[in-house]
């Protein structure tokens, strides 16, 4: 018996940021990433009847997003195939023989590896945030990720500053525990 169920009314609050970060890390373009997230939610809603509940809601949404990303790359690659690709190599005379090295070498050392690790870390943090109670997740995101002022959050959500700090404290404690389990 599967215990997972779908609740589309909670999708945006719980998974939008996670899907968005996943998408940005794969396509490196904010606008395209947003479009892919939107398409994912629409496709998920359309095929919600096919959801069997074997996987969690988040895993199921991510699998749809992955297909959307593959479709996106297929689409742009089929467009690229029609155009002539020209690569220019600007040699100033004394560059003989170092074409390959210049193309491949990473002048910033381990940047690529670091970037991948930070992307994975970002996804792990978002995964942990999605496990928080919705109110904690929202307030933590507004304060930590979006950088809103305490006063702005309190006014918008109609809470007192002491309430906000209690919620932030609970969220941070839960996140630390979650990351200790899943990241370290």
């Amino acid at each position: 018996m599967s215990s997972n169920t779908l609740d589309p009314t909670q999708w945006i609050d719980k998974y939008a940021d996670y899907l968005y970060n996943y998408s940005v890390s794969r396509v490196s373009d904010n606008e395209i990433a947003q479009d892919l997230v939107q398409e994912t939610f629409l496709a998920a809603l359309k095929s919600s009847e096919n959801y069997k509940g074997d996987a969690s809601e988040r895993t199921w949404l991510i699998s749809i997003l992955k297909r959307k990303i593959i479709d996106y790359y297929r689409k742009i690659n089929s467009k690229k195939g029609k155009a002539e690709v020209r690569m220019s190599y600007n040699s100033d005379g004394d560059g003989d023989g170092d074409w390959m090295e210049e193309r491949i070498s990473d002048p910033h050392g381990n940047n690529a590896e670091e970037k991948i690790q930070n992307t994975e870390l970002g996804l792990a943090i978002h995964e942990c945030i999605s496990k928080l109670p919705p109110k904690q997740a929202k307030i933590f995101s507004m304060k930590t990720i979006e950088g809103y002022e305490t006063e702005t959050i309190c006014n918008e959500l109609d809470i007192t500053p002491s309430n906000l700090w209690v919620i932030i404290h609970r969220a941070r404690t839960a996140l630390t525990a979650c990351l200790e389990e899943n990241w370290f």
């Binding site: 945006i12 939008a16 940021d17 968005y20 970002g122 943090i125 990720i145």
Partner: peptide, 19 residues
């Protein structure tokens, strides 16, 4: 260091309305 990103509030609201 994770450089966390978040969809802006307007985008989230429009996604909610659409759903």
């Amino acid at each position: 260091s994770a450089n966390l990103k978040s969809l802006d509030k307007d985008k989230k609201d429009s996604l909610k309305k659409m759903l």
